[in-house]
Simulated scan of single mutants.
Amino acid sequence: MTNIVLTGGTRGIGLGMARAFLERGHRVALCGGRAGSVERAEAELAGRDVLAMVADVADRSQVQALWDAAAGGFGRVDLWINNAGVSHRREPLWRLPEDEARTVVGVNLAGVLNGTAVAVAGMAAQGSGHVWNMEGLGSDGRTVPGLGVYGATKRAVTYLTGSAAGEMPPGVSIGLLSPGMVVTDLLTHDYDPQELRKARRMFNILADRVETVAPWLAERAVSQARNGAHVRWLTTGKVLRRFAAAPFTRRDVFGET
């Protein structure tokens, strides 16, 4: 049994991974930024060995409270996954409101900084543990018009994790999880209907559903927890094979008829 903390575990890939961990007999502490989402996730996962609480990952004291609750309830924390993430409207940087940009940076980058710092300190004290940080659009340096701030935070997370791998205390390790394109509200966020119709052509080649990706990531998060690990769902080889097969197959990741 592995004791796991998962930020942003109330929806999307986070909730899917929480469910997969619990189904495999692990214990999970998860957080979300809003009481309503935490209550819904807790109700959906009812009857499992789960601890759910509200925490703003941009506030280190709240992240510390999440660690304290998990370590106190489970006895120790084996894996900590910095999954919490938000996006913003598709706008050029100069038109994006400051408060919206600040929120994205606060959750996606400061949240990972806080989670990593708190988890590594706690794991150093207990003698072992592993931190996973979640990659996303922009991690590989690719740019998408209108998503500059989001992409910059994910690029920074990749750099931060690589740097931190050289600074881990004895017994503690860190790595990256890369889920690829997953059909969640983050993927389809802020498209107008015409743009979304066009984008879906690409999504139906490269994207996957939460129930496909989450169990795969959950298994490897437990089995491949070593320093500098980089677990990728959507590899270059998989991308090439999907494009080659696209003229001959029909994928509908949105489940529409």
Rank of each mutant, 00 (worst) to 15 (best):
R40H: 02
A117E: 10
L30F: 13
W94I: 10
E211A: 10
A117D: 07
G25D: 10
V131Q: 09
F21T: 05
T7E: 13
R241W: 11
G106D: 14
A124S: 13
E219L: 13
G138A: 03
R76P: 10
S178N: 15
M181V: 06
R48P: 00
A101W: 07
R27H: 12
E167G: 09
L113E: 11
E195I: 01
G237M: 08
A125S: 09
V253Y: 03
R89W: 00
P179F: 04
V77W: 06
S61T: 15
A156E: 10
L186P: 15
D185F: 13
H230M: 07
R34G: 07
L79M: 07
L22W: 09
S178Y: 09
I81E: 02
F74G: 04
E91C: 00
L96F: 06
K238V: 14
A214N: 04
A55L: 12
T236K: 12
V131E: 05
G14L: 01
V239F: 01
R48F: 14
A29T: 05
R76V: 15
V210T: 06
V131T: 09
L137M: 14
I174Y: 08
M53E: 07
V231W: 01
T236C: 00
P215Q: 11
A152E: 08
P170S: 04
A46P: 02
R76W: 15
P92V: 03
V183P: 05
D252Y: 07
N114P: 06
G175E: 10
L160F: 15
V107F: 04
L137N: 10
A165R: 14
G106T: 11
F243H: 01
F243D: 03
V54A: 12
H230S: 12
V86F: 00
G136V: 04
M17G: 08
E98P: 05
L45R: 09
G73C: 02
T153F: 08
N83W: 06
W132I: 01
W94H: 12
T10V: 14
V63K: 02
